[in-house]
Amino acid sequence: MDPMWLGAENLVELFERPQMVRQLFKEADAVSLMITDPFGRRIIELLEAYLDAVGLGFQGLGFLFVGLENLDLLEVDLLRIGLDVRDWLDPEKPLSSRRVALLIADFKERPETRIGAKSFGIFPADKATIVAAEAIAAHVSDESYRHRFLKSPDELADEMAKIQEAKDKRAVIAKQQVSEIVSVPAGENSFVAASEKSQAALSALLASQGE
């Protein structure tokens, strides 16, 4: 039987609870296996034999774990090639675990896929785009420079958050300057105080951008 008959929540524990493999045999065979090895001393051998028989092996099972841990990414990658992840999660549907494992192995080598991009630690991009981004980076004098195509979604989100924070600080400074011009009484001392306050806020903003 396909390993998905265990259910997704149990399949991810198959390495830790290898005795569950007995549930993937027909009832008569499961009874024979229990009689042959009642204490489960050869359960790992049985698991290995089963995984080989269904065309997975331990490596293929590992790919299935990757898919289950990144189910949202896998769903998008499968949809792009016309497959529905529900046809795998439901063992009565036609998509076998063997085929899914082969696809995940392929996705991991393709940075344009969601699973592949996560494996490479970048935002999804095809190999031609990556080569172009690396070529651009090679002509930038700053050794720490990395093209946005070579950055992960988390890194890009962090950068956007910092940009927004800088915008918010500029808006606060602008409001302070307008308020000071309108409300501060005329006089040299008042103007100097307001100017020093604005300069201090501007310096703090520039310092935060340099971090």
Rank of each mutant, 00 (worst) to 15 (best):
F120P: 00
S179V: 01
Q177N: 05
L51M: 14
G57M: 03
S96N: 01
D90A: 07
K162Q: 04
P91W: 07
D2N: 11
I130Q: 06
S152G: 13
A49D: 14
L71W: 09
Q23R: 14
S198M: 07
G7N: 06
S96G: 03
T129V: 10
E112G: 06
L103W: 09
G55V: 12
A207C: 02
E13T: 11
G60Y: 02
A137R: 07
L103K: 02
A132W: 02
E109C: 02
L83V: 00
G62L: 10
E69I: 03
P153K: 08
L14C: 07
L24Y: 13
A125C: 12
V140N: 10
W88N: 10
Q177Y: 03
V85H: 02
G55C: 04
L206I: 04
I81S: 05
R170M: 07
L61D: 07
I115Q: 04
Q59L: 12
V54P: 09
K162W: 03
G210D: 13
G82K: 09
P94G: 06
D37A: 03
E134K: 08
E45T: 12
L56R: 10
L11C: 12
D87R: 05
I122C: 13
L68C: 10
L51K: 03
K26W: 10
A200S: 12
L33K: 09
Q199V: 11
K167P: 01
R114Y: 00
G210C: 00
A138E: 14
G67A: 08
G121R: 08
G187R: 12
S97G: 10
S179G: 04
E109Y: 01
K127L: 10
L83N: 00
P91G: 06
H139R: 14
G57Q: 07
S152E: 14
G82H: 11
A125S: 14
E159F: 03
P124N: 03
L24D: 11
A28F: 05
W5T: 08
S96I: 01
Q164E: 04
L6V: 09
L79T: 05
L11I: 15
A161E: 01
K197S: 14
W88Y: 15
E188M: 13
A207Q: 08
Q199P: 00
F39D: 15
R98W: 06
I104K: 06
I181W: 05
S179E: 13
Y50K: 05
I136L: 12
K151I: 02
R99V: 12
P18T: 12
Q164N: 04
E75D: 15
